[in-house]
């Protein structure tokens, strides 16, 4: 049986919720306490933490004098908001008309197959997540993917491999498995 609203926030670590609640007051303080601030606040929180945690929703409700339900209801209406932490690298595949005509679904499948997850999911190691997005407005360059906020045009399966190669190298550098020249 599902408990209302409690299915959100899957996979959040306790220290993450802790860190979020520490930084929240400062973020909330940037906004006036009126209902029109609701979407801008949620956007700002997602920008800061990449998703909306249950604790953040409660804090926003408190701040604006709304009920938890109202904030939850509004947040779940909009595509933009996420309720689970995404991967380090966010991969968004454009599903606009031009991208569809030019095989955007094949690109999406490529990412899905490569990572073993479906759109809307995050890899267990939290390195990657895949999302499908409505048109990003670069139709003349279809098919298009947006990887970590960079728009990549004329997407091809071979470009997918190149991207991951680059990410894996970055990861190894990060984890100290490869030493860079500077170090």
């Amino acid at each position: 049986m599902e408990v209302s609203g409690q299915h959100i926030g899957h996979g959040i670590r306790e220290e993450e919720e802790q860190a979020i609640s520490e930084k929240l007051p400062e973020i909330l303080g940037e906004f006036s306490r009126e209902r029109s601030s609701l979407l801008p606040i949620l956007q700002r929180i997602q920008e800061a933490f990449k998703f909306l945690s249950p604790g953040a929703i409660k804090a926003v409700a408190e701040y604006l004098g709304l009920s938890g339900s109202e904030v939850y209801g509004v947040a779940t209406f909009y595509n933009q908001f996420r309720f689970h932490p995404p991967g380090r690298h966010e991969i968004k595949i454009c599903m606009g008309t031009a991208c569809h005509v030019k095989g955007g679904d094949v690109i999406l499948e490529n990412f899905e197959r490569r990572l073993g997850i479906k759109e809307g999911e995050t890899t267990p190691d939290r390195e990657y997540s895949i999302e499908r997005v409505a048109c990003v407005g670069c139709c003349a360059l279809a098919p298009v993917a947006v990887v970590d906020d960079k728009v990549i045009g004329y997407m091809q399966p071979s470009k997918v491999e190149g991207l991951f190669l680059q990410f894996e190298i970055q990861r190894k550098i990060r984890e100290g498995q490869i030493k860079t020249e500077a170090s």
């Binding site: 209902r35 029109s36 601030s37 609701l38 979407l39 801008p40 949620l42 956007q43 604006l64 209801g73 509004v74 209406f77 909009y78 595509n79 933009q80 908001f81 409505a134």
Partner: peptide, 24 residues
């Protein structure tokens, strides 16, 4: 005011709901 990813908010009454902090 930045929209939050809802096509229906292109409809003017939904757009207004959204600025008011409601479901569009």
């Amino acid at each position: 005011f930045q929209g939050s990813g809802a096509f229906v908010c292109g409809e003017e009454t939904a757009l207004i709901q959204s600025i008011e902090g409601r479901r569009g």
